[in-house]
């Protein structure tokens, strides 16, 4: 799996189509890289972790270390 993961990540870095598939068309990405149904399922469900509304994740992404109300870092 490590080699496949590495290949996917390298391809996404180089190819905008692969990035689009990663974000919006995971079945196409799964087919291209031969992901198992279980692997694809987990990938597809990442959607649930990432609300698409801008800023929806501010409590985490403002900083990986610190956030206190209106202040951070």
């Amino acid at each position: 799996m490590s080699e496949k993961l590495r290949q996917i990540m390298t391809t996404v870095a180089e190819d905008p189509t692969a990035l689009r598939e990663l974000c919006d068309d995971t079945p196409a990405l799964a087919e291209r890289f031969g992901l198992s149904p279980e692997e694809h399922d987990r990938l597809a469900r990442a959607e649930r972790l990432a609300p698409r509304a801008p800023g929806a994740y501010m409590s985490i992404t403002l900083h990986t270390i610190t956030i206190t109300a209106d202040r951070g870092l």
Partner: peptide, 12 residues
């Protein structure tokens, strides 16, 4: 099994 999920999360 969580690495690609992490990448997609950040990509989104």
């Amino acid at each position: 099994s969580m690495i690609l999920e992490m990448v997609r999360l950040h990509a989104l």
